[in-house]
Design a binder for these strands. Structure first.
Length: 562
DNA sequence: CACGGGTGCGCG
DNA sequence: AAAGCGCGCACCCGTG
């Protein structure tokens, strides 16, 4: 059963109840005052079977519900599902895919323009004004039609359900927040920089700047300016072509040590210093703005707060509440395992049976050392052409021909300008106009060698993107299934409890999750994490025997895990 | 003064 | 060891 929510006025919501066959008119259709919505949803969630809520955008509809203490089990996030169905090769030729660009394609932009400050907007966002967005019911019907007419309705249904679950989780993560000790963070900063300065650089950084200026005999040097710094280095006889740390690290010169130290410290201060603490941590919680589906591959993005770049250096400030624990879990070698499943490569799957896939590759005899196995796998998935990684490719291809063939074919398709598709049906965007123009110019009768070189470079670049897309996008699908399963299992550990009174997800990082749980349920939460990973593997790859081991550490602080 | 591209570095 | 995928963010600097 579905209940479709539509804004039907500034203060009114229309709720239409429809069955699994979405074509007949709604069995029930009612208009509610917005103030009645939370109670209505709460009541429906208490009945069996629970409905699947169908709405335009989970951030708009779900955040106020959560704020009112109401959780939902399932939804359809029409905006996210629309984006998938528009682009998927599975739905090519359906009415939805063929329709001209419409409001469902631009909804995000409209919201962003109306509410540029997403940080505060989350809880203030209103449902789209009537007329701004066409009927959710109509859109839902068109989406169902597209799925039914697609080449693989089963996989697409799973993808849409997982994507929608992700949308709910994104809102819940923001609502719960990551338990974060501002005090510990402040202690760390104070230890590194001294007391917080009222303005300007902390004394520690100022001293390093003085040391660097003296060492390079450049009294006015601004070490934050790469061109300025590069000139000063070269004047001092240090022949580097950039100011990147890894390049500087190879130079022997007394100025290098303070310079590298300055770079490391100033980076930490700029990205996660006191200013970051002030804007993003409040009441013991870090609340970043997650954007499910924000990356072309279906990975999540973040807007503000930099949640997906939380440096290892500060993870000690992520601490469980008293009487609570963190379950920190990550999927071991997720992407190579995904590749094994995608390609049906039995040899690679068996290399990954048990714990460490890279050790398994060594045991298979393809390479001698774990580090080689890792660099070779990454090279295969990213399209390395040179260096150690490039040299190892033939050996990898000999031992794992199916896996390597799959990524090679994805790369060739991209080079031809074709789209590629993930396990469950997310397709890559086609290359843009300038890409096509460059290919056209290279094959024209009057093309120059430069035209051809440029076209070839662009084609190879795009091939590396599509090569990686099939793996990264499928891994993102696995992660969504993992989290969706986990969310259900955690909810079952404490039926009826409010989100933050029971074990709940507080962090997600591509192949890693953190659960915040009362101590008594920590072991059960850790088991749920592991079981959910196995279920995700079955959802994506059915009976194909590829393992997805996850480590699940029960800890007080994020820094204690691995 | 705002904006956009480039650089560098944090994460997976 | 430092190229090969996907990001976000701070900062610099040139341009309008």
């Amino acid at each position: 059963m579905h209940i479709v929510l539509d804004a039907s006025g500034p203060d009114a919501v229309q709720a239409s109840t429809i069955g699994d066959d979405v074509s007949p008119p709604p069995a029930d259709r009612r208009v509610l005052a917005r103030s009645e919505l939370a109670a209505f949803v709460r009541a429906r969630e208490a009945e069996e079977p629970r409905p699947r809520w169908v709405w335009s955008d989970s951030r708009v509809w779900y955040a106020p519900l959560l704020a009112a203490g109401v959780r939902v089990e399932r939804c359809v996030d029409l905006r996210l599902c629309h984006a998938i169905l528009r682009a998927s090769s599975f739905t090519a030729g359906t009415a939805l895919a063929a329709a001209p660009v419409g409001p469902w394609d631009t909804a995000v932009t409209i919201e962003q323009e109306a509410h540029p400050d997403a940080h505060t907007a989350l809880f203030e966002l209103d449902a789209p004004a009537p007329g701004a967005t066409p009927s959710a019911l109509d859109e839902f019907r068109q989406q169902q039609e597209a799925v039914a007419a697609s080449s693989d309705p089963g996989r697409l249904r799973l993808l849409l359900a997982a994507e929608s679950a992700g949308a709910l989780i994104g809102v819940e993560l923001r609502h719960a927040g990551l338990p974060y000790s501002a005090e510990r963070h402040d202690d760390l900063l104070t230890e590194l920089f001294g007391a917080r300065p009222a303005y300007g650089r902390p004394a520690v950084l100022e001293a390093l700047v003085a040391e660097i200026r003296a060492g390079l005999e450049a009294p006015d040097l601004n070490p934050d300016s790469p061109p300025d710094l590069l000139r000063a280095l070269q004047r001092a006889g240090i022949m580097v072509t950039s100011t990147r740390s890894w390049e500087l690290r190879r130079i022997e010169h007394p100025v290098i040590a303070p310079l590298l130290r300055y770079k490391k410290l100033s980076r930490l201060l700029a990205a996660n210093g006191w200013a970051w603490l002030d804007s993003w941590v409040r009441d013991g919680r870090f609340r970043p703005d997650y954007v499910p589906g924000g990356v072309v591959t279906g990975r999540w993005a973040t807007r503000g707060g930099g949640a997906l770049q939380l440096p290892k250096q500060v993870r000690g400030a992520v601490v469980a509440d008293p009487g609570w624990k963190l379950v920190v879990a990550d999927a071991a070698q997720l992407e190579p395992r995904i590749l094994a499943g995608l390609s049906g490569d039995q040899a690679m799957a068996s290399a990954g049976r048990g714990k460490d896939l890279y050790e398994g590759i060594v045991a298979s005899g393809a390479v001698e050392e774990r580090a080689q196995a890792k660099v070779a796998m990454l090279g295969a998935m990213y399209g390395a052409t040179s260096g150690e990684s490039g040299r190892l490719m033939p050996r990898l291809a000999r031992s794992f021909p199916r896996a390597v063939r799959l990524v090679e074919e994805a790369a060739r398709a991209g080079e031809r300008g074709e789209i590629v598709t993930s396990r469950l049906g997310r397709s890559s965007p086609p290359p843009g106009g300038s890409w096509r123009a460059a290919q056209g110019a290279a094959s024209a009768s009057d093309s120059t060698a430069a035209d051809e070189r440029r076209a070839r470079t662009l084609a190879r670049d795009w091939g590396r993107f599509t090569r990686n897309f099939v793996v990264q996008a499928s891994a993102a699908e696995w992660a969504l299934c993992w989290m969706a399963e986990l969310r259900n299992r955690l909810a079952a550990l404490a039926p009826g409890a409010e989100l933050t009174d029971a074990p709940h997800l507080v962090y997600f990082l591509h192949d890693e999750v953190i659960v915040h749980t009362p101590e008594a349920l920590a072991a059960a939460s850790a088991e749920a994490v592991v079981a959910a990973a196995q279920q995700a593997g079955r959802l994506l790859f059915g009976g194909f025997p590829v393992d997805f081991p996850v480590t699940a550490a029960v800890v007080d602080s994020y820094a204690e895990a691995k």
